[in-house]
Design a protein around this nucleic acid. Structure first.
Lengths: 204, 204
DNA sequence: CAAAAAAGTGAACACAAATTCAAAAATTGA
DNA sequence: TCAATTTTTGAATTTGTGTTCACTTTTTTG
């Protein structure tokens, strides 16, 4: 054999992979998954369609990875808050605020990740990731209940309800309406209050 | 002209239309929208594919109508509760119970109507219908706030949160898990408590 | 530079469904 | 029954993309 992958090449390959992911993310952020056809991704990444398949076995897996990366980042942020200092109520408050704000900042991306219709494979992943979001809240709830801050409750259901509540409250307004900062803050505040009351912590 | 549509024919036509709707509903209930291809619908309804297009301009519009009919029926039931007797808290309690129960009874249908990936046209309709669900709860909330039963709150946000909360809490378990009646009742109870606390009414 | 191997290309292919439409069957009124 | 008209059929067409693969280009090493 007279060819062996050099470190430089290695780097270029990794680079290509990143470019694909980046291009996909960008397209999804702009026009949702439906705008992110392989041809479009390839064009934006400046490579051929065939190339994509050198790095990802299928469009679905590419999407799942993009979804996972984005969700993973969000969860990391949330987890930091969840495991940080403060009472359970405070942390829940902070987590909710943070999440709603971030979702409103990138409406299309949020829509795509929360509910845009895609193929079943991607959807399965989405459900998994939603569960992960729930787990972060669940941890706070368990802690709060242990410390007597929150009343006893079905933490799985409550966690799911929290995720669902802001999901729904966000996606409605996200689609067509573009809101100003003031409205956004009010919305964030409303959702937060709802969830905090629901969980039994301080209402405002 | 020697052909004029007779009343008998008129009836047959209407019948065909109903058969199409029925077949579609059935297929969706069994295997979601994805199983309800035009060919399958036609086969189940006992007619040719071309026939479908005599009654519906496109698959999307057929789906929208099926979705609308099903949702309309649910909303009718909810509205009856909402406009019925009892305190706002009681009515909210009843409405939530009813909704969760009905959804759990027909899991696939609920899944299809709540989140199954479909094309954008249908999805737009779905968002509209979700809003309608929200409106029913919103009405109860407004009433309850007026009567001093619930604390003042952003009723739009709260309504959306309620819809989102049980939607999420239901769809998770709906997909793979088939639950027994006891679990279902617990789940219904959990969701209900969450929402009632959130709204500020009696907790249990 | 040359040969071997891998990376990269993009037009062609595959595929699954929705949709159409020319022809066949059925209905109607005389 | 017959001609006019409508309904019904289902094979063929269309459509939109994902995916492949024979070929070209680039990279690597002797």
């Amino acid at each position: 054999m007279v060819y062996r992958r050099s470190p430089l090449m290695e780097e270029r390959l990794a680079n290509n992979r990143d470019r694909i992911l980046l291009a996909t993310r960008k397209l999804v952020a702009e026009g949702g998954f439906r705008e992110a056809q392989i041809a479009a991704v390839a064009a934006l990444a400046g490579m051929s369609t065939g190339m994509i398949y050198r790095y990802f076995p299928s469009k679905a897996e590419l999407f799942v990875e993009v979804l996972g990366d984005a969700v993973g980042a969000e969860i990391e942020i949330l987890r930091e808050i969840a495991e940080g200092p403060g009472s359970a109520g405070e942390r829940l408050h902070a987590a909710l605020t943070c999440f709603v704000r971030r979702a409103l900042r990138g409406p299309n991306l949020a829509y795509a990740f929360i509910t845009e219709p895609v193929d079943p494979e991607v959807d399965t992943a989405r459900i998994r990731y939603r569960k992960k979001f729930g787990d972060v809240f669940k941890a706070i709830l368990i802690d709060g209940i242990e410390k007597g801050e929150f009343p006893d409750q079905d933490v799985d259901a409550s966690a799911a309800c929290i995720v669902g509540a802001f999901t729904e409250a966000l996606v409605g307004p996200i689609g067509p309406t573009t809101r100003n900062t003031h409205d956004q803050q009010r919305l964030a505040e409303s959702i937060r209050s709802f969830c905090l009351r629901a969980v039994g912590g301080a209402s405002s």
